[in-house]
C-alpha cells in the first residue's frame, strides 16, 4: 500500500512535468499532492496531511490556474520535442543509481531514536514556537510582495484579474 502510494506520487509528478498543457500540468500536480497527503496520513501525520490537501492541492493549484488564465492568449512556448525520448533514459538512470545507493546504505546507517509524547498542539507550542514567528514573517513577506508587484495606481489587482481571465476559456485553442 505504502509503495503503491509512493509510485502514484512519483508518477503524477512526472506527468505534471511532461504534459504539454499547463492547465493539465497544474491538475496533475494537485493529484500528486493528494497522494502525498495520503502518505502523510499513513505515517500518522494527520495535520500535515490536511494541510497538504487544503493548501498545496487547493490554494497553490488555484494560484497556478489563476496565473495560467492571466497569461493565456499568448503564443504557446515551443518546448524541446525530445522530452518523451530523453526523460525515460534520464529517469531509468536515476532509478538505477538510486537503487544502487540505497542498497549500499540499507542497514548501515546508525541513528538516534527520539521519543515524544503529548499532542500535536503541545509540541507545536512547546518546541516550535519560534517557527510561528517565522511563519508570520513569511506570510507578511508574501502578501507585501504581491501588493508591491501589483501596485498600479490605486486599484491593485482586482481590475486585471477579470479582464484577460474571462476570455481565454473560450479560446483555449489546445483542445
Amino acid at each position: 500500500m505504502h509503495l503503491f502510494l509512493m509510485i502514484g506520487l512519483v508518477a503524477f509528478s512526472i506527468l505534471a512535468v511532461l504534459t504539454r498543457d499547463l492547465l493539465r500540468s497544474a491538475i496533475c500536480l494537485a493529484v500528486a499532492s493528494v497522494f502525498l497527503a495520503l502518505v502523510f496520513f499513513r505515517m500518522n501525520a494527520v495535520y500535515a496531511g490536511v494541510f497538504e490537501v487544503s493548501v498545496v492541492a487547493g490554494l497553490i493549484t488555484v494560484l497556478f490556474i489563476t496565473a495560467i488564465a492571466l497569461t493565456r492568449g499568448d503564443q504557446e512556448v515551443a518546448e524541446n520535442k525530445h522530452h518523451m525520448l530523453v526523460f525515460p533514459f534520464f529517469f531509468l538512470f536515476l532509478i538505477v543509481f538510486d537503487i544502487l545507493v540505497m542498497r549500499k546504505l540499507l542497514g548501515r546507517i546508525p541513528a538516534i531514536a527520539g521519543s515524544e509524547a503529548g499532542t500535536f498542539g503541545e509540541v507545536l507550542w512547546n518546541q516550535r514556537t519560534f517557527d510561528l514567528v517565522g511563519q508570520i514573517g513569511v506570510i507578511f513577506a508574501g502578501v507585501l510582495a504581491v501588493l508591491a508587484l501589483f501596485r498600479q495606481g490605486e486599484n491593485p489587482r482586482k481590475g486585471d484579474t477579470t479582464l484577460p481571465g474571462g476570455q481565454p476559456q473560450g479560446g483555449s485553442s489546445h483542445e
Binding site: 519560534f130 517557527d131 517565522g134 514573517g137 513577506a141 510582495a145 508591491a148 508587484l149
Partner: peptide, 23 residues
C-alpha cells in the same frame, strides 16, 4: 536562532522579501 530549521525559515523570510524588493 539556535536551531537548524529556523535558519532555513528565516532565510526564506529574508529571501521572499528580497525577491520583491529586487523587482
Amino acid at each position: 536562532t539556535s536551531d537548524l530549521f529556523n535558519i532555513y525559515l528565516f532565510l526564506e523570510v529574508a529571501a521572499v522579501a528580497s525577491y520583491a524588493l529586487v523587482a
